[in-house]
């Protein structure tokens, strides 16, 4: 394709990205570096601040089962589960945003509908993990649309297996952030992830690979223009896709473990659909 077409594609995907994703990397980095004036995030660093911060997270109160009615047990028991439930609601909303973004990729909606479902099923958690990276630094992560900063130490202090959920994402994100992609690079990278022709069960791989190839060309050109001094950035970025698959596999296994061990946990129906028979 002509360079002008590839630039037009990059612009189109960047516009869709800005339209569907409310918290961009530019905004997140401004919040994290304290450049938003008085608008500083509420910091959650222990159980007390978590409970104070719940009003920001807009937690739905989940009923505590009979066998946990004793007051202090109830409090300790419910807090992690309640936080997990609010994470699920946000994740479901994020899946909707990613779906709208996917539909804006030229040619995506013309693919076989079953294949659109497969691409989203396998791609959406990878996309969400990439989108989480700009919200993170080595000390913690923004949540709740940037209204809250939750410390990494606090997440590590939660009871098992909740404490194991975020640490691999921090490790990935800290490394990923050193690539210094901006929002316009991210938009193309997300489209490349969605258009992976090797997802299990795809019916018609060829048109998906053709679409991905065009977006890959556009991404390669974008990185050359936007990061002229960053050698091998395109290759480094493509390597991240392998790491991502392992993180998603581990994440799904952890959720499956949670489902077995947390008798009162209910998985959001949309996330259940995505994770069922995934890996």
């Amino acid at each position: 394709p002509e360079a002008a077409d590839l630039r037009a594609l990059a612009r189109h995907l960047y516009e869709a990205y800005l339209k569907y994703f409310p918290l961009t990397k530019a905004k997140a980095r401004a919040i994290l570096s304290g450049k938003t004036g008085d608008n500083v995030p509420f910091v959650i660093h222990d159980m007390k601040s978590l409970m104070e911060g719940e009003q920001f997270i807009n937690c739905k109160q989940i009923p505590v089962p009979e066998h946990h009615q004793q007051q202090h047990i109830k409090l300790l028991y419910a807090v992690e589960l309640r936080f997990f439930q609010s994470c699920q609601s946000r994740s479901a909303e994020a899946v909707r945003e990613v779906t709208e973004f996917a539909k804006s990729i030229p040619g995506f909606v013309d693919l076989d509908l079953n294949d659109q479902v497969t691409l989203l099923k396998y791609g959406v958690i990878e996309v969400l993990i990439i989108m989480m990276s700009p919200l993170m630094n080595k000390d913690g992560t923004l949540i709740s649309y940037g209204q809250i900063f939750m410390t990494r130490e606090f997440l590590k202090s939660l009871r098992k297996p909740f404490c194991q959920m975020m640490e691999p994402k921090f490790e990935f994100s800290v490394k990923f952030n050193t690539l210094e992609l901006d929002d316009s690079d991210m938009a193309l990278f997300l489209a490349v992830i969605i258009l992976s022709g090797d997802r299990p069960g795809l019916l018609n791989v060829k048109p998906i690979e053709q679409l991905q190839e065009t977006v890959l060309h556009s991404l390669e050109l974008q990185l050359k223009l936007n990061h002229p001094d960053s050698l091998q950035l395109f290759a480094k970025l493509l390597q991240k896709m392998t790491d991502l698959r392992q993180i998603v596999t581990d994440h799904v296994h952890l959720i499956q473990l949670l489902k077995k061990t947390e008798i009162d946990m209910c998985l959001h129906p949309l996330l259940q659909e995505i994770m069922k028979d995934l890996y």
Binding site: V95, R96, E100, N114, V117, T118, L120, P269, E273
Partner: peptide
């Protein structure tokens, strides 16, 4: 596949109007 993924299918088929999640 569509049957097993009703919500995803619905999100794909609907326009940008938010689905009740």
């Amino acid at each position: 596949l569509k049957e097993k993924h009703k919500i995803l299918h619905q999100l794909l088929q609907n326009s940008t109007s938010p689905v009740d999640l």
